[in-house]
Amino acid sequence: MDIAFIIEKLILISAILGISLVIAMYTTLAERKFAGFFQDRVGPNRAGPWGLLQPLADGVKLFTKEEIIPTHASTFLFVLGPSLSMFTACITTAVIPWGQDLFLFGRQVSLQVADINVGVLYVFGVVSLGVYGVMIGGWASNNKFSLLAAVRSASQNISYEIAMGLSIIALLMMTGTLSLREISEQQAGMNWNVFYQPLGFLIFMICSFAETNRTPFDLPECETELVGGHHTEYSSMKLGFYLFAEYINMFVSSAIMASLYFGGYNYPFMHLISNPNVAALIGVAAFFTKILLFIFFFIWVRWTVPRFRYDQLMKLGWKVLIPLAIVNIALTGAGILIFGK
């Protein structure tokens, strides 16, 4: 553990945090542009060419707005809620392998903040912390709409977490490891897990929609029933944190789906490129392409599918996805025992 190692990690961490923030910012613009496209209108186009400066303008606006803390709210928890949401969104990226090792200045630089052997468990642990942000913020607002949104969000997230955990078990039976880097390496040469685990991937994807509170599962911020949901009382950057955390979570779940099921940084004909740095950089580009495609899919679904009703949501989670995930485990287990793969 020398000083160069720490500097290298600090640069990597700042780069990853910066990139996830920029991608989250531009996802908000992309979302509004695509919404415009789907609804046959233009979308934001005033700030900069094609509205490219719109996210910056939004950021500055949120920063300079008055900060309101209602008199009936619990002040400490009211501030803690959005902070927790943002904090958990920022730390999930620590175990995602962004690419193969680079060779710079005679050092082998890993494009992963920490290669720990329980990577998948770490992701699940942090993701399940995410629910506290919404729950604490909604309860601390002391507003009836926010309270309803908070309990809804809590029971929705925990219900879908079970199906998510079960769907990943079938994948782990195949890979035999919890390290995201090893899972990525095993998928080299179009040996993507999605071809062996289509049902598991489908369950996992549906659950990620529910975990990120995206449509069709955006009941915590269902504006037709709950005004603004858990962030009804929030203003200025605290509101910004809630909205931003959702987009960062979208980016992170896209990255996790890409690395677990869609080959991570692997791409076809990867072994033909002799220079390791070039191969690694193309790998990073391939990984980000996959992530952006998933983000587009999130946006596409949002403007296509209507919102679920609460009883439908719970029915889908408990009565469909959980039994389906258990069936998937049984099928995978039988498949591995019979074919030896």
Binding site: M1, I6, K9, L10, L12, I13, S14, I16, L17, S83, M86, F87, C90, I91, T93, A94, V95, V113, A114, I116, Y122, F241
Partner: peptide, 15 residues
């Protein structure tokens, strides 16, 4: 796990 601790501090600082 040390780099994860670094990232935790970075995230706390940012927030």
């Amino acid at each position: 796990y040390f780099p994860i601790v670094l990232q935790l501090f970075a995230a706390i600082g940012f927030v």
